[in-house]
Simulated assay, not measured.
Amino acid sequence: MSKKKVVSIEDRIPKLKQARKKKANRRLIFYLSIFFFLISIIVYLQSPLSHIKTINVTGNSFYTEEEVINKSELTTTTNIWTINKAAIIAAIESNPIINSVEIERKLPWTIEIHLSENDLVGYISDENKFYPVLGNGTVLSNVGQNTFNGEAPLISDFSDEAYLHRMTDELQKLPGNILNLISEIYWTPSEDNKNKIVLYMNDGYMVKGTIRNFADRMEVYPSIVSQLEPNSSGIIHIGVGAYFESFDSETSDPGIDREIEEEDSDELH
């Protein structure tokens, strides 16, 4: 028979004490690590290390970076973790130029403000200056320019602001390739129909139509032009139907004009 080795309690006690001591030391190190980690976080949050150092603004054309930052009220003493995104967005969006805003933190100390501005749909002229007009009808009276660059249509004779807003809303719905074809837009209201407009196109044609559903009706313009003889000139009527009236013809079909008048003669609601 094999003999079992007997270990006395006296021999085991030092080993047990040593194991307990190691366990206690590990526990102490763990708690001290948590303690110093929490202290580090508190020190970081209270120190300039957590302050914003860089603010980047993107998507701005009419609204300067300095104006955006001033509106946000963010500074280099603002804690990056305590910013109120909802309040900043609301403050910046109070400017009619702005359509939407996104705020993004980029560690360790950068804030990015992404803007989406309302589309430029035209210019209006006043006292030999040209002012941008946005899709929501806002006229940027603080950014006038001395020359008209043709970047968007020149919008003229809109003495009633309500009709101007309605026109810009329609222009905003137009595909870019069609909007770029328009050179000038004139409001030509009559007693029976205040929605009448006349357009001068970059390709030499005139367009007569109405503000009501203008974007939908104008979509047929490229198709009509593609069917015309090269070097032809005249007026393209868009309404319930659409037809071309040559400047060379002595007569034209007035029927569609009457249909447009009857359908579109009601006032703004």
Score class of each variant (00 low, 15 high):
Asn231Asp: 15
Ile260Lys: 06
Gln46Ala: 13
Lys3Asn: 14
Ala162Asp: 09
Phe130Gln: 06
Asn70Tyr: 11
Tyr31Lys: 03
Phe30Val: 05
Gly137Gln: 09
Phe214Leu: 14
Arg258Cys: 01
Ile236Met: 10
Glu73Tyr: 09
Thr188Glu: 08
Thr251Glu: 13
His51Glu: 10
Pro132Arg: 15
Pro222Gly: 10
Asn193Gly: 10
Met167Ile: 09
Ile260Phe: 02
Glu117Tyr: 06
Gly209Trp: 07
Phe247Trp: 10
Asn79Thr: 01
Glu259Gln: 13
Ser40Met: 08
Ile236Trp: 06
Asn231Glu: 13
Asn60Glu: 01
Ser226Asp: 14
Ile41Tyr: 06
Gln18Ala: 08
His237Leu: 10
Ala242Lys: 07
Ile238Leu: 15
Leu74Thr: 07
Met167Leu: 15
Ile113Arg: 12
Ala162Cys: 00
Leu115Val: 02
Phe35Cys: 09
Arg212Glu: 13
Gly135Asn: 04
Leu154Phe: 08
Ile235Leu: 11
Val57Phe: 09
Asp216Tyr: 11
Asn84Val: 14
Asn84Lys: 13
Asn70Gly: 00
Asp169Arg: 03
His51Gly: 08
Asn177Ile: 02
Ser50His: 06
Asn60Trp: 09
Arg105Leu: 11
Pro48Leu: 02
Asp203Phe: 10
Tyr205Ser: 00
Val6Ile: 14
Lys23Asn: 06
Val57Ser: 14
His114Cys: 01
Phe37Trp: 10
Glu184Phe: 10
